[in-house]
Amino acid sequence: MTLETPDVTGLDEAVRALREWQHDGSPFQLHPGDVGWFWRFGAEATAAAVRTWRRDGRLLAVGLLDEPDLLRFTIAPDARHDEELARQLVEDVEDPERGVLPAGTVRIDSPRDTRFQELLFERGWQSADPWTPLRRDLAEPVPDPGVRIEVIGPERAHLHAAVIRASFERSTFVDERWHAMAAGSPYADARCLVAFEGDDAAAAVTVWSAGPGRPGLLEPMGVHRDHRGRGYGKAITVAAARALRELGSSSAVVCTPSFNTGAVATYRAAGFTQLPEIADQRRA
Results as ranks from 00 to 15, higher is better:
4 E>Y: 06
9 T>I: 05
9 T>R: 10
11 L>C: 09
12 D>W: 12
13 E>A: 15
14 A>F: 06
15 V>F: 11
19 R>S: 09
19 R>V: 08
21 W>E: 03
22 Q>T: 06
24 D>P: 00
25 G>D: 09
25 G>M: 10
29 Q>C: 12
31 H>V: 09
35 V>T: 11
36 G>V: 06
39 W>E: 08
40 R>D: 10
41 F>L: 15
41 F>N: 15
43 A>V: 08
43 A>Q: 11
43 A>L: 10
43 A>C: 11
45 A>H: 14
50 V>P: 03
50 V>D: 05
52 T>V: 12
52 T>Q: 06
53 W>F: 08
53 W>H: 04
58 R>P: 04
59 L>C: 03
59 L>K: 00
60 L>D: 03
61 A>E: 00
62 V>N: 06
62 V>H: 07
63 G>H: 04
67 E>R: 00
69 D>Q: 13
70 L>N: 10
72 R>F: 13
75 I>M: 09
77 P>F: 08
85 L>S: 02
88 Q>M: 01
88 Q>L: 05
91 E>V: 07
92 D>R: 08
94 E>K: 00
96 P>F: 09
98 R>E: 15
106 V>M: 04
107 R>S: 08
107 R>G: 01
111 P>W: 13
112 R>G: 12
113 D>Q: 10
115 R>G: 05
117 Q>T: 11
118 E>Y: 10
121 F>G: 08
123 R>D: 14
124 G>A: 13
125 W>R: 02
132 T>V: 07
132 T>R: 05
135 R>W: 06
136 R>C: 14
136 R>Q: 14
139 A>D: 15
140 E>Q: 15
145 P>Q: 00
148 R>K: 10
150 E>N: 08
152 I>W: 14
153 G>Y: 12
153 G>A: 14
155 E>C: 10
155 E>P: 00
155 E>D: 13
164 I>P: 01
165 R>L: 09
167 S>N: 04
168 F>W: 14
168 F>M: 06
168 F>V: 07
170 R>V: 01
174 V>T: 13
176 E>P: 12
177 R>E: 06
177 R>D: 01
179 H>R: 15
182 A>Y: 03
182 A>D: 05
185 S>C: 12
186 P>M: 09
187 Y>A: 15
188 A>K: 15
188 A>Q: 13
190 A>H: 02
190 A>S: 15
190 A>E: 06
192 C>D: 05
193 L>I: 04
194 V>M: 13
198 G>F: 01
199 D>E: 14
200 D>N: 11
202 A>Q: 06
203 A>V: 02
204 A>E: 07
208 W>A: 12
209 S>N: 13
218 L>N: 03
218 L>K: 02
220 P>Y: 04
221 M>Q: 04
221 M>H: 03
226 D>L: 15
228 R>S: 01
228 R>N: 01
228 R>K: 05
232 Y>M: 04
234 K>W: 00
236 I>R: 00
237 T>V: 05
237 T>N: 03
241 A>E: 07
246 E>V: 13
250 S>M: 08
254 V>Y: 02
254 V>R: 01
255 C>W: 02
256 T>R: 04
260 N>V: 05
261 T>K: 10
262 G>I: 11
264 V>Y: 03
266 T>Q: 03
267 Y>A: 03
268 R>V: 13
270 A>I: 03
270 A>G: 01
274 Q>K: 11
275 L>T: 13
277 E>S: 14
277 E>Y: 13
280 D>W: 06
282 R>N: 02
284 A>W: 02
